[in-house]
Design a protein around this nucleic acid. Structure first.
Length: 945
RNA sequence: GGGCGGUUAGCUCAGCGGUAGAGCACUGCCUUCACACGGCAGUGGUCGCAAGUUCGAUCCUUGCACCGCCCACCA
């Protein structure tokens, strides 16, 4: 083995080997355990969030596989409608073409081509972080099998009356030219204005003033509303107004919706371009006047002079004209919430369009069949309320249920080309025919089609197919094996449905609504099962200061840069490459040069994974600190070198024969510690506390195995007792092999690499650590006696080290050590550990001083009633030792005082649980013993001068 | 406006009713034959503020302050 751990060499070796050997496939026996990968966008590249989330999943999957579960990690990618279409459209833009120049078929062909070339970027990156997924079953949301599932679901919901087509006000993205769902709209606070505009009454004798943030929409006003109990305007209700600029006569009406206190108390009503106004319009049976085209320009409904203007130009024109007419009463600054499209940053325009919806709100349909609320929403709520699906951490349950309680119908049609085309056809009279294809649609027709049929141009929301992921990937609807384009079987519903429900969904809270809730809805409806038993909501990865990672801030980290390392200049280059605004570019460059003056050091996949594990508490954000990752790189190196030490001490080429029972206390102690650690890790896997689990293993390896057991093994291996040496060798090896198994789910590469050297020494025949079973805590029995012995030894050694350090005795110098007082057990322990004490504390052979004998002046440590001493002669400053002793005595007296305070409180003794009182009494007794011995020592020290 | 988090050592975070912890950073000593990506020994905290419950509160309750996230139609 190399002297230090070099991740790059190791990592390149193992992944391909594992994948080729089929180690990631379900073993085909054992209890099913399935995890669904939230399919990343094909357009994506791996970011820290993916790396973290997949590390979590990978730990679970590798752990459960080792525990003998029939483990499936279902992977794939998402076609990401808008994102993918945009990439290809941008490519076309360089050629100065639009998708319309190509036409639908040619465009889609081009997107597929792009997918073939670039779609595997992210899956290859996933391999770099060790993702142990079954790639032979990789799916794509637009592959044939999943498309069949999409069609079936659409058709069944349609026939059940749960999908409908309607002309509704929807969130319209005028840049992308498509409807988007409520979830795809962000409300952003912007500085704007509030304008007050006078609307005169028809008779010209009176007027009222409306307040608006969007004056241009007045071209589509159909009424003005006031509050029913507002005396100021009561006399105007029922009268009509002359709408300025348009001249249209519009009524004044009363509606509770109006807030008397806000603005002027008069609201202009534009039902075709505002969701609230739409609702009022419905209540009062008002007409809907659409005044914008689909690219948000004023249309023919408006007066001639505004036609063709963009909505913001129209605003300027309207305001100018109102001002000229003397109708603009007031203009003042006003902060407002602007709906912005997540995908294009365009301001959303509510638009009346024909769209497809999934009914999620109606209790029953007109024909008596259950509506969407009852058939889809309620079961999804119930699954979580009943505990059939559990959120971890559980407070996300509230978020989930509150959203479902207030859900709106889901707009599923998108005016895009890339996606699942809606399986609906229209005849020349506008009748709708839904089916697998045109023939099927005709066959299910209830009316005779008029003329030719043409298919709906729209595609489905990307999340529609994602909602089916839990069962569509397993081969549903199940007409035999599903094959991929290479003819390989990727799923077979009859066999694979055992993986439903999956064990746990690991995902971010940002897609609880987009994805999680919808999977529950679809899976409950079509399969009658929950898609998963638990939902582990992972934290969002931020930078070390808790800032969201974003390219324009320059605080993003590429997980692959952490793994491989990157020099400063390439890092600057890569971070600023996509930034177009020079100021932003300069700012980012400055930050990078400041944060990473030497670039990023290569920490390797294992250390990155361990860092993620160590940071994965129940907190909802994790602030990624590269310093911490470097610490875990050091841990990997520590493990590496511990293994190197063990292997160096084994005989060449032989199997280390399993000895009988372990001979030394140290062995029995380390085995006990190991067992307790394994038990803790197992428990913490069940609660998803990866931070605790990682910490337990870290502490075991570093603080127990390396710091103490390896040190104790050194004298044992070089000592005269051949039996103890042989036994120690075996235990060193067994503990190492066990801990490699325990660590493998977190740090798969380094553990495999080491294991390959370790396995032959134990005569293990599995080809890979992946095939070894997870260690069972019960394989080893707990030995409290040995633990007590070793804890005693640690105290003695620590005492000696402290004296050496504080008295500045050179670490290499061999010094005498004396023992005095103590119990009978101390005598036997000193004898038993004499060699280890001498070896590790660098002392001469321990010597006892009789109780009556003259003691030399010495520095001392106290362990129980035992005094451990280093004679002063030539080594130690007497005054310094006196000071040291006094300080220690004062400290302990403080502790005793605290205990006495508690025990002197009658209420404490009367009310505290008996064991707490007993514990306090024990503590005070121990302190008294220690302080007694220290005083004795101080006394002797005075005498000896 | 509603909901959910957070506030503990210089930094990043655990702990959540009975002696305040980890990693990194920092100080001193040490290149000792697994490891300087190391060893040994240390420094460092009135656990955001206030009141309450309790024998006892960093931990429970209430209020307040500050930071953050999600949802929502105030024109």
């Amino acid at each position: 083995m190399e002297k230090s751990f070099e991740p790059a060499q190791i990592e390149s070796r193992w992944y391909a080997h594992w994948e080729a050997s089929g180690a990631f496939k379900p073993p085909g026996h054992g209890e099913p355990y399935c995890i669904l990968l939230p399919p990343p966008n094909v357009t994506g590249t791996l970011h820290m969030g993916h790396a973290f989330q997949q590390t979590v999943m990978d730990m679970l999957v590798r752990y459960q596989r080792m525990r003998g579960m029939n483990t499936l990690w279902q992977v794939g990618t998402d076609h990401a409608g808008i994102a993918t279409q945009k990439i290809v459209e941008n490519q076309l833009a360089i050629e100065e073409k639009t998708r319309h120049d190509l036409g639908r078929d040619a465009f889609i062909e081009r997107v597929w081509k792009w997918k073939e070339e670039s779609g595997s970027t992210i899956t290859n990156q996933m391999r770099r972080i060790g993702t142990a997924a079954d790639w032979t079953r990789e799916r794509f949301t637009m592959d044939e099998g999943l498309s069949a599932a999409v069609r079936k679901v659409f058709i069944e919901w349609y026939r059940a009356g749960l999908i409908y087509r309607g002309n509704r006000l929807v969130n319209w993205d005028p840049v992308l030219g498509t409807a988007v769902s409520d979830l795809e709209v962000n409300n952003v606070e912007r500085d704007g204005h509030m304008w007050s505009i006078r609307y005169p009454t028809t008779d010209g004798k009176d007027s009222l003033v409306v307040a608006t943030t969007r004056p241009e929409t007045m071209l589509g006003d159909v009424a003005v509303a006031v509050h029913p109990e507002d005396e100021r305007y009561a006399h105007l209700v029922g009268k009509t107004l002359t709408l300025p600029l348009s001249g249209r006569q519009i009524p004044v009406l009363a509606d509770d919706y109006v807030d008397r206190e806000f603005g002027t108390g008069c609201v202009k009503i534009t039902p075709a371009h505002d969701f609230n106004d739409y609702a009022i319009g419905m209540r009062h049976k008002l007409p809907l006047i659409t005044i914008f085209t689909l690219d948000a320009k004023v249309n023919g409904e408006a007066p001639e002079k505004y036609r063709g203007l963009d909505r913001y130009d129209a605003r300027k024109a309207v305001l100018a004209d109102l001002d000229t007419a003397g109708l603009l009463v007031e203009t003042r600054a006003h902060k407002l919430q602007v709906p912005v499209s997540q995908r294009s940053d365009a301001v959303i325009e509510p638009m009346l369009t024909d769209q497809w919806f999934v009914d999620l709100t109606s209790a029953t349909q007109s024909d008596g069949r259950p509506g969407g609320r009852k058939a889809i929403t309620e079961p999804a709520l119930q699954a979580v309320r009943s505990g059939e699906i559990k959120f971890v951490p559980e407070n996300w349950t509230t978020t989930y249920t509150q959203w479902l309680d207030n859900i709106q119908d889901w707009c599923i049609s998108r005016q895009l080309w890339w996606g699942h085309r809606i399986p609906a056809w229209y005849d020349e009279a506008g009748n709708i025919f839904v089916g697998e294809n045109e023939v099927d649609a005709r066959a299910h027709a209830t009316t005779e089609p008029v003329g030719a049929l043409r298919q709906d141009e729209d595609v489905l929301d990307t999340w529609f197919s994602s909602a089916l992921w839990p069962f569509s990937t397993l081969g549903w609807p199940g007409n035999g094996p599903v094959k991929n384009e290479r003819g390989e079987i990727v799923a077979n519903w009859e066999e694979d449905k055992i993986f439903l429900p999956s064990a746990v969904l690991v995902t971010g809270f940002d897609i609880i609504f987009f994805w999680v809730a919808r999977m529950v809805m679809a899976t409950k409806y079509f399969i009658g099962k929950s898609p998963f038993r638990e939902i582990y909501i992972n934290a969002i990865v931020r930078d070390a200061e808790g800032q969201k990672m974003s390219k324009s801030k320059g605080n993003t980290l590429d997980p692959l840069d952490l793994i491989d390392g990157i020099e400063l200049e390439p890092l600057v280059q890569k971070s600023t490459m996509s930034l177009l605004i020079p100021q932003v570019r300069a700012k980012v460059e400055k930050r990078i040069r400041k944060d990473y003056p030497d670039g990023i050091p290569a920490i390797g996949t294992d250390a990155l994974r361990f860092t993620f594990a160590a940071l994965a508490s129940y907190s909802r954000t994790i602030n990624f600190d590269i310093k911490r990752a470097e610490g875990y790189k050091a841990f990997c190196n520590k493990l590496w070198n511990a293994a190197r030490f063990v292997l160096m001490n084994l005989p060449e080429g032989e199997i280390v024969a399993p000895a009988g029972a372990p001979v030394t206390e140290a062995e029995r102690w380390i085995l006990t510690k190991l067992m307790l650690t394994i038990a803790q890790v197992e428990q913490r896997f069940t609660t998803y506390r990866f931070d605790h689990l990682a910490q337990a293993l870290y502490e075991f390896v570093w603080n127990e195995y390396c710091d103490w057991f390896l040190e104790l093994a050194k004298p044992a291996l070089s000592g005269d007792d051949a039996t103890a040496a042989a036994s120690t060798r075996h235990t060193l090896l067994v503990v190492l092999e066990t801990v490699l198994r325990a660590l493998h789910p977190i740090i798969p590469f380094i553990t495999e690499e080491i294991w390959q050297s370790v396995a032959p020494k134990l005569g293990l025949t599995e080809g890979s650590l992946m095939q070894r079973p997870w260690p069972h805590a019960c394989e080893i029995s707990e030995d409290n006696a040995a633990t007590n012995e070793i804890e005693w030894f640690k105290s003695v050694l620590s005492g000696l080290r402290k004296i050496r350090a504080e008295m500045n005795i050179s670490p290499g110098k061999i010094i005498p050590v004396l023992f005095a007082d103590g119990e009978v057990s101390d005598r036997s322990r000193v004898a038993k550990f004499a060699m280890q004490i001498s070896f590790l504390a660098r002392t001469e052979a321990p010597q006892w001083i009789g109780s009556g004998a003259n003691e030399p002046a010495a520095a001392a440590a106290v362990v129980g009633t035992l005094r451990v001493m280093i004679p002063l002669a030539g080594l130690i400053d007497l005054e310094a030792e006196k000071t040291r002793l006094t300080k220690e005595i004062v400290r302990i007296e403080g502790e005793i005082k605290k205990c006495e305070g508690k025990l002197g409180n009658a209420n404490f003794v009367a009310n505290a649980p008996a064991e707490v009182v007993a514990q306090e009494r024990q503590r005070i007794a121990d302190w008294n013993t220690t302080v007694g011995a220290l005083r004795e020592q101080a006394h002797k020290l005075r005498d000896s001068v």
